Computed example of a mutant assay.
Amino acid sequence: MLRIGLTGSIGMGKSTMAKLFAELGLPVNDADAVVHDLYSGEAALLVEAAFPGTVKDGVVDRQELGRQLSATPGGFKRLEEIVHPLVRKRESEFIAREREKGSVMVLLDIPLLFETGAEKRVDVIVVVTCDPQIQRSRVLARPNMTEEKFNAILARQTPDAEKRKRADYVIDTSFSIEAARERVAETVSDIKRRLANGEFEHA
C-alpha cells in the first residue's frame, strides 16, 4: 500500500488540499483532526499534568495552552513528547485498517512531516505552497492571530523553499480552487501511473 505524505507550512491550504484528495477517493488520515480528538480524550490528562490549568471540562483549551507554551522554554518539546507518540499510534491504526480493506494508497496529512522525520514513513511527498503574501494574509485573518504568533510558528517550521526542494510533487494554492483541484487530479493520476509501473520500492 502506497503512503502519500501531504505537508505544507501554516496558511498554505493543506487541509483544503487533503479534502480534494479525499474527493478523488483516497483515504485520508488528518493529523490535525487526530490531535483535536486526542485533546478531548486520552491526551487531556497528560497535557494537564505537564501544563496545569490548560484543561477545562475535560478538553484542552488551545488558547491557554498556546499562552503557556509561549511563556515556557522547552514547552513545545514537552508537548510534542506527549502528543506525537499518540498521533503515531493513531496513524499506524489507520494504515492497518486501510491495508485490511485492500486500499491501494492512502494520504497521510502530516503538518510537521519534515520537522518530525515522518518523511521516512511515506513513499511520496506532496508539498502545498503559495505566495508568501497570500500565506501571510490568510494566517493573519485567523481569530486571535498576531504577527508575533505567526512569526513564532514560521520559526518552528521547515522553510517553504526547503520543503519544495524535498517534495515529489508541489501544489500551489495561490490561484483558484479549480486550478488546485486540477493539480491534485494530475498528481493522483501520475502517482497511479508510477505505481502501475512499479516505480515505488516500499509500496
Rank of each mutant, 00 (worst) to 15 (best):
residue 194 R to M: 04
residue 22 A to D: 06
residue 115 E to Q: 15
residue 67 R to D: 07
residue 145 M to K: 03
residue 39 Y to P: 05
residue 7 T to D: 10
residue 33 A to N: 08
residue 17 M to D: 01
residue 28 V to D: 09
residue 78 R to Y: 03
residue 108 L to W: 10
residue 198 G to V: 04
residue 90 R to G: 09
residue 30 D to R: 05
residue 172 D to Y: 01
residue 3 R to D: 05
residue 3 R to H: 01
residue 149 K to P: 00
residue 54 T to V: 12
residue 49 A to V: 01
residue 47 V to Q: 06
residue 88 R to C: 05
residue 141 A to T: 02
residue 55 V to T: 08
residue 78 R to P: 01
residue 165 K to M: 12
residue 123 D to L: 09
residue 167 A to L: 04
residue 151 N to E: 12
residue 40 S to W: 01
residue 111 P to Q: 11
residue 84 H to S: 14
residue 167 A to M: 04
residue 91 E to R: 14
residue 16 T to W: 02
residue 30 D to F: 01
residue 19 K to A: 14
residue 85 P to T: 10
residue 154 L to I: 01
residue 112 L to E: 06
residue 125 I to Y: 00
residue 83 V to N: 11
residue 68 Q to N: 07
residue 78 R to F: 00
residue 143 P to I: 07
residue 98 E to G: 02
residue 55 V to H: 03
residue 26 L to E: 01
residue 193 R to S: 07
residue 202 H to R: 15
residue 96 A to N: 01
residue 49 A to K: 13
residue 184 V to Y: 10
residue 29 N to P: 00
residue 18 A to Y: 06
residue 154 L to S: 00
residue 113 L to Q: 06
residue 93 E to N: 14
residue 43 A to S: 14
residue 110 I to K: 06
residue 105 M to N: 00
residue 140 L to P: 04
residue 153 I to A: 01
residue 129 T to L: 01
residue 69 L to W: 05
residue 94 F to D: 05
residue 39 Y to Q: 14
residue 75 G to K: 14
residue 104 V to H: 04
residue 73 P to Y: 03
residue 95 I to D: 00
residue 196 A to R: 12
residue 99 R to P: 00
residue 171 I to W: 07
residue 196 A to G: 06
residue 189 S to C: 10
residue 184 V to H: 10
residue 165 K to H: 10
residue 131 D to Y: 06
residue 132 P to A: 03
residue 135 Q to F: 04
residue 129 T to D: 00
residue 15 S to L: 08
residue 93 E to L: 15
residue 138 R to E: 12
residue 92 S to P: 00
residue 49 A to N: 12
residue 132 P to D: 02
residue 67 R to S: 13
residue 139 V to G: 12
residue 74 G to Q: 08
residue 26 L to I: 02
residue 14 K to N: 14
residue 60 V to G: 10
residue 135 Q to S: 06
residue 117 G to C: 08
residue 46 L to S: 04
residue 9 S to G: 15
residue 94 F to E: 08
residue 3 R to I: 13
residue 173 T to A: 13
residue 114 F to L: 14
residue 180 A to G: 13
residue 140 L to Y: 08
residue 75 G to W: 09
residue 111 P to W: 11
residue 12 M to G: 06
residue 9 S to H: 02
residue 113 L to G: 05
residue 189 S to Q: 15
residue 45 L to N: 15
residue 108 L to R: 14
residue 26 L to A: 04
residue 67 R to F: 10
residue 196 A to F: 02
residue 179 A to F: 03
residue 185 A to K: 15
residue 144 N to V: 10
residue 3 R to M: 12
residue 83 V to Q: 09
residue 56 K to Y: 05
residue 156 R to I: 00
residue 96 A to S: 07
residue 192 K to D: 10
residue 176 S to I: 08
